[in-house]
Computed example of a mutant assay.
Amino acid sequence: MKFSFKIQQYQTDAVNAVVDVFKGQVRPAQDTSYFFDPGRLVPVKTKKAKNSNGYNLFQQELDEQEAKQDIILGYANAPIKLDKVQLLENIKLIQGNNNITPSKELIEGQGKCSLDIEMETGTGKTYVYIKTMFELNKQYGWNKFIIIVPSVAIREGVKKSLETMEEHFMSQYGKKARYFIYDSKNLTKIDDFAKSNEINVMIINNQAFAKSLNEEKNKEGRGGDKGALIIYSERDEFGSRKPIDVIAKTNPILIL
């Protein structure tokens, strides 16, 4: 069954309101890239012997592998170039046009600024923020987004919405979004998220920040360090990197 979506003006207005917050931001001529950290290589064999120079062959093997490794690029959202004054003026203008009491200051702490977009139940909030991602990509080139949800049920619903609306937004923007659900047992998807220069969406429920305990520290009756969450801890199976560091490097836009 194929769904047909009717574009509502109030939804378009809501999308434009978010896009206009960053009015004056210049889209970069090319995607913002950086040298991607693939993590620490795992040796094929463990060699405890040392060569004539006393150099550990285990380390030598790693160095030889790393020397042969190709340079990999990751892609990140270009930073917001607007200063606080300009951002706040943009926000006040939007608020004035919508009969909202103007903000006195920016809400910071989670990045350059935090925005609240209020819509009533049943008015298509999910559609609006998915369309907003496409518009932010079109206008400013931003392509890394993380949708944070409060439950597994909503997480699955968001994934289904992205799947259902795929063709609709393909017809409007000529591209599709790559999306996946964060899974601490399959961290390689985070690498794909970081290395792709397409629109990429990670869906994660907030329990992942509070309940993904470090399994390595929970073994053999050690009790574990309950403060060491998987997303914040160095993982052997992830090249001894912290998943949160790889994610943060992409400078993502968070949608709660």
Rank of each mutant, 00 (worst) to 15 (best):
residue 138 K to A: 04
residue 245 D to C: 03
residue 189 K to G: 08
residue 73 L to G: 00
residue 185 K to T: 14
residue 215 E to F: 14
residue 55 Y to C: 01
residue 73 L to I: 13
residue 173 Y to H: 05
residue 151 S to F: 09
residue 32 T to N: 10
residue 134 F to C: 10
residue 151 S to R: 06
residue 154 I to E: 05
residue 237 E to H: 15
residue 166 E to L: 10
residue 155 R to K: 15
residue 145 F to S: 05
residue 185 K to E: 11
residue 217 K to A: 08
residue 46 T to G: 03
residue 196 S to L: 05
residue 110 Q to N: 14
residue 123 T to H: 04
residue 219 K to P: 00
residue 58 F to W: 06
residue 240 S to F: 06
residue 86 Q to K: 15
residue 221 G to I: 03
residue 194 A to H: 11
residue 190 I to N: 04
residue 25 Q to G: 07
residue 158 V to T: 11
residue 216 E to G: 02
residue 205 N to R: 02
residue 223 G to H: 11
residue 142 W to V: 10
residue 237 E to Y: 14
residue 235 R to H: 09
residue 178 R to N: 15
residue 231 I to H: 03
residue 211 K to Q: 14
residue 39 G to P: 10
residue 208 A to H: 07
residue 187 L to W: 04
residue 24 G to C: 12
residue 149 V to Y: 00
residue 18 V to A: 02
residue 244 I to D: 06
residue 234 E to Q: 13
residue 218 N to G: 04
residue 247 I to N: 06
residue 193 F to T: 07
residue 65 Q to P: 00
residue 164 T to M: 08
residue 33 S to R: 12
residue 60 Q to W: 03
residue 123 T to S: 13
residue 226 K to C: 00
residue 91 I to G: 01
residue 44 V to M: 01
residue 227 G to K: 08
residue 122 G to M: 02
residue 199 I to W: 00
residue 86 Q to N: 12
residue 248 A to G: 12
residue 29 A to D: 14
residue 60 Q to H: 12
residue 242 K to Y: 02
residue 253 I to E: 03
residue 44 V to L: 09
residue 92 K to Q: 15
residue 179 Y to M: 01
residue 6 K to G: 13
residue 246 V to Y: 07
residue 46 T to L: 05
residue 25 Q to L: 01
residue 50 K to C: 05
residue 125 K to A: 08
residue 225 D to T: 13
residue 19 V to K: 02
residue 234 E to M: 05
residue 147 I to K: 01
residue 152 V to R: 06
residue 79 P to G: 09
residue 86 Q to W: 02
residue 84 K to P: 13
residue 6 K to E: 15
residue 87 L to P: 14
residue 101 T to C: 01
residue 70 D to P: 04
residue 29 A to T: 15
residue 75 Y to D: 08
residue 130 I to R: 04
residue 70 D to E: 10
residue 16 N to E: 11
residue 242 K to V: 02
residue 177 A to W: 09
residue 107 I to R: 08
residue 3 F to Q: 12
residue 176 K to I: 06
residue 17 A to C: 04
residue 163 E to G: 05
residue 137 N to C: 07
residue 217 K to D: 08
residue 190 I to W: 02
residue 203 I to A: 02
residue 232 Y to Q: 06
residue 45 K to W: 04
residue 101 T to P: 06
residue 123 T to I: 01
residue 82 L to F: 09
residue 41 L to V: 12
residue 57 L to S: 02
residue 124 G to D: 08
residue 53 N to C: 08
residue 4 S to G: 03
residue 164 T to E: 10
